[in-house]
Write a protein that binds this DNA or RNA. Structure first.
Length: 902
RNA sequence: GGGGAAUUAGCUCAGUUGGUUAGAGCAUCAGCAUGACACGCUGGGGGUCGCUGGUUCGAGUCCAGUAUUUCCCACCA
């Protein structure tokens, strides 16, 4: 017998199994066509990232799904990878270069990319190795990086195809410009934040009406020099007679027209709006409608340029704002300034207000929008929790073209070439292909790269080498696609989830304008999307580096063990809700593992056994002699089936938190607290049948728990085995299998109910003792007055267990009413033998209980006297109420009898 | 402005299609070193289920309204 430590020490098993799993190639992609396939798609973490709290939950869930599939006899693979993280990595590399004294303005693109690549190779992928210590079972040998050669070809192919199919165009538009990182951003990368600002009221003199002016209101006086008109609502009575006239722009003085446009809200400010087409998207649209010129007065970095006028050149937009306000004030053109709160778009990365900027960019008009909606609304792809479907569908309903070009170097360079010295706006001078033109010396490639999300959106098939058929065969695309489950956060539902669905609809089959339901079903990238909650701190704030409220995951693993951490985090993650992170829950996880460890230790103490690696369920059952099974054995085996069935349902519905709770309560309450205690002496006596029952329960628990806590379970599974090997592919019997396997045992279904009664009897007896404040060292005696003959038989059969479980010297039977402290149980009345009876106290207790019962009886009586209740309620409810009434009444009678004798 | 989610014990949450006296864990209180486990065992206390109406024999559960919290989406300068 191997000695197991008294306390589970994670460190002793984690490292061993981490390397063993990898050495034994446990997670390699091996296709077995006789099995059903199962594929988990890992959301590729940023190559710049390190393991954070969110990953723990996310990765644990993915791992659990993959491992559960393996125990269900499926051929499972989990594809890992990393994202090149466009802006994020570029910013990091730039910082490092500056630190090393390298001038970013003069460095060449190729040189920069060399540095960036080196940075990635050095720091990137840390996260995947960190994940290993969490015990993830992903296929490390097939990890994919979004800038890998093969994957890149996929990204560019998608671009080229979409261009050919007419979905990609180049245009000069107002885009979200980040003045800090100097690139365009998509609408999704802009977050609105309420900001305290000021609303300035400015007078523009009317040219045709000397002495009169029109008052406009603006939050951005620094753009006045870019004004090309003043607009009013055509229905606005105040201004109707001014339409068509002109006013004077107060700075860089110029005459500009007063125009009418429906975009203007009569009720906001003065009802007159200055039009600056270069610096506002609404204004741009108005400008287009009225054929107005465009005056861009800002540099890309947000400073003012020469068109703003000499005195403002080079000023930052916010400094200029104050200066211009002062100047307007001095001129007498500023009539008032109001405090004002409005929503300003911020660049997520740069954390500065974005600048609406007119520039030449590449745009994608999304293909297969309707199909992508149907993929979800028709249920081909299921979201958990379901309510995210609405968010998804709403986004698709209001979808707008996607600006996919970024003014960066790090990323997939746009596969478009322009003839040298030609007009780039003329598409006749373009070449669009993955490999470029053959006479490349006559062409210049577009400088921009693609938005990172325009590369990760092909992830579900890009990881299989799409569009390279040979590679796809090699990677078993046919077998694993569509993937089964994607676990991710709802914060990237638009960024990523929706776009992956769109890309799959477009590319996972021949080019078609529209798709039938059948075709949609064939193209979906994944069948289920599980959205996790966001991990928050005790104050409900998001975990973030800047707040410093995020614990270091590796420290937590060291403190609680990977298994404890995994179990604890699943325990605290209610499905579909954000979770408040509390280290206490990790303690619970650690405690659970320790309890499992000790329960296992106990079940094998002082006896010979065969390791689980060498014995099947049938083998164990064969060791049972049916005659030796007692009521507790019957009940625990039946409860095992019941619990497994519940558990299976919960897992199937992705209710992982509930599943964890079920398994925890079966193991801890049913098995440890009841069965282990009840069967202790028989096990100690060497009863083989009891040992086998323990083995059945423990074996099943290990199989069910392995996906959640893989280290400890693999260790226990292998206790006694010299050539240890992972249990990950051992088939886990379902509740149905168990029922069939237990058929030969003739389990008695009534045992569950009887054991419940015994539990309550035990609980109440203990309460009686604990409340009576007798000295424990005192020799105690209980007298039982059984309710019925059947009750007496049950109790007599169980008497020795009762004595041990209650921890008393002796129990005897009586049919008299005794003047002793007593308690009513479903099986009869229990009296505690004490030296001195405090009769006042006892009478009070009895009276209180009689009163309580009387209240209940009254309620029952009222209900049963209602004709409506009797005619409309279903029979079993009426029966139940009657039964309750009679039980309560007879209980009350018993108590009254006792009371009357005192 | 539109939409989603939440509101049940001091805390974190369960509560399936309406049905008998609303559950769990943590925390708390009391007792126990009982031959696996003090990361443990036993027992106790603690809730008019956000609020107001409605439907129903019966509502934590269904409907309407309302309040608070929170997250998305949206071009009022």
């Amino acid at each position: 017998m191997e000695e197991l430590s008294k306390v589970f020490i994670p460190d002793h098993v984690e490292k061993k199994w981490t390397s063993k799993w990898l050495d034994d190639c446990c997670f390699d992609r091996i296709v077995d066509n006789s099995k059903e396939s199962f594929c988990v798609l890992m959301p590729p973490p940023n190559v710049t990232g390190v393991l954070h709290m969110g990953h723990l939950l996310n990765q644990t869930l993915q791992d659990a799904f993959a491992r559960i599939a393996r125990h269900c006899n499926k051929c499972a693979t989990w594809i890992p990878g990393t994202d090149h993280a466009g802006i994020s990595l570029q910013v990091k590399v730039e910082k490092e270069l500056i630190k090393n004294g390298i001038n970013l303005k003069t460095i060449e693109r190729e040189k920069f990319l060399e540095h960036a690549g080196a940075w990635r190779d050095k720091h990137g992928g840390v996260i995947l190795s960190q994940l290993k210590s969490l015990g993830v079972s992903c296929d490390f040998k097939n990890q994919v990086h979004t800038l890998d050669g093969g994957y890149s070809r996929g990204v560019l192919t998608a671009f080229v195809e979409l261009y050919k199919r007419g979905y990609i165009y180049r245009g000069k538009r107002i885009v979200n410009w980040c003045p800090k990182t100097l690139t365009a951003l998509s609408d999704e990368e802009v977050t609105m934040k309420p900001q305290k600002s000021k609303l300035y009221y400015v007078q523009y003199d009317i040219v045709e009406r000397p002495g009169r002016s029109i008052e406009i209101s603006t939050t951005r006086p620094e753009t006045i020099m870019g004004d090309v008109a003043v607009a009013v609502n055509p229905e606005d009575e105040r201004y109707k007679n001014l339409i068509g006239l002109h006013c004077k722009r107060p700075l860089n003085v110029m005459e500009i027209p007063i125009i009418a446009d429906n975009a203007v809200d009569k009720n906001f400010g003065t009802g007159a709006l200055k039009i600056t087409p270069a610096h506002d998207s609404v204004d741009f649209a108005v400008g287009q409608r009225h054929n107005l010129p465009i005056i861009d007065i800002l540099n890309p970095d947000g400073t003012l340029n020469a068109r703003a006028g000499d005195e403002f050149i080079g000023l930052d937009r916010f400094t200029a704002r104050e200066k211009i306000a002062e100047k307007l004030q001095a001129m007498g053109a500023l009539s008032k300034v109001e405090e004002y709160e409005n929503n300003i778009g911020f660049s997520e990365r740069g954390n500065v207000p974005i600048e609406p900027r007119l520039s030449e960019q590449w745009f994608l008009k999304y293909p297969k929008v309707d199909e992508s909606k149907r993929a979800v609304s028709e249920g081909f792809i299921k979201f958990y929790p379901k309510h995210w479907e609405k968010t998804y569908l709403h986004w698709l309903d209001n979808i707008r073209d996607w600006c996919i070009s970024r003014q960066l170097w790090w990323g997939h360079r746009i596969p478009v070439w322009y003839k040298k010295n030609s007009d780039r706006s003329d598409s006749n001078n373009w070449h669009v292909s993955v490999d470029g033109p053959s006479d490349i010396e006559n062409w210049e490639r577009d400088e921009d790269v693609l938005d990172t999300w325009a590369s990760s959106w092909i992830w579900p098939f890009g990881v299989f080498g799409w569009p390279d058929q040979e590679k796809m065969n090699e990677k078993s695309f046919q077998y694993f696609y569509p993937t089964n489950v994607l676990v991710t956060g709802p914060d990237i539902i638009f960024f990523w989830v929706a776009r992956m669905i769109i890309a799959s609809m477009e590319f996972m089959g021949p080019e078609k304008k529209s798709l039938s339901d059948k075709e949609i079903k064939e193209r979906i990238p994944f069948e289920n999307v599980y959205f996790t909650g966001i991990i928050r701190d005790k104050l409900g704030r998001k975990m973030s580096k800047s707040l410093g409220n995020s614990p270091e995951p590796l420290d937590l693993i060291a403190k609680y063990g990977a298994d404890g951490l995994r179990f604890g985090i699943l325990l605290s993650a209610p499905s579909g809700q954000d979770l408040i992170f509390n280290e206490e829950n990790l303690k619970l996880g650690r405690n659970f593992c320790n309890k499992l460890w000790n329960a296992f230790r106990f079940s094998r103490i002082n006896r010979s056994y065969t390791p689980y690696t060498k014995i099947s369920l049938a083998d164990i059952i064969a060791k049972i002699s049916t005659a030796d099974l007692d009521i507790d054995d019957h009940a625990i085996l039946l409860n095992l089936i019941k619990f497994c069935s519940t558990f299976e349902g919960q897992v199937k519905n992705f209710e992982i938190n509930a599943a964890i709770n079920s398994i925890s309560s079966f193991f801890w309450n049913e098995y440890c607290d009841w069965y282990v205690e009840a069967s202790k002496s028989r096990l100690k006596d060497g009863n083989k049948t009891v040992a086998a029952v323990h083995d059945i329960i423990m074996r099943q628990l290990l199989l069910l728990l392995n996906p959640f806590i893989p280290f400890i379970t693999d260790e226990l599974w292998n206790v006694g085995e010299r050539n240890q090997r992972s249990m990950q592919n051992v088939y886990c019997e379902t509740s149905k299998d168990l029922r069939a396997a237990f058929d030969c045992l003739n389990l008695d279904k009534t045992s569950i109910g009887v054991v419940l009664q015994l539990k309550e009897f035990l609980n109440l007896s203990r309460r009686l003792i604990s409340q009576s404040q007798v000295e424990l060292k005192e020799r105690m005696l209980l007298h039982i007055c059984p309710k019925t003959e059947i009750a007496e038989e049950i109790l007599r059969n169980y008497i020795s267990k009762l004595q041990r479980l209650i921890g008393i010297e002796k129990i005897d039977f009586t049919d008299e009413i005794l003047q002793l402290p007593s308690i009513q149980t479903p099986l009869g009345i229990v009296y505690l033998q004490v030296a001195k009876v405090n009769s006042v106290e006892e009478k009070k207790k009895l009276a209180w209980e009689i009163e309580r019962l009387s209240k209940l009886i009254r309620l029952n009586e009222i209900q049963l006297s209602s004709r409506e209740f009797l005619t409309r309620a279903p029979a079993h409810i009426i029966e139940g109420t009657k039964k309750m009434l009679s039980e309560n009444t007879s209980r009350r009678e018993e108590l009254r009898k006792i009371l009357s004798t005192m």
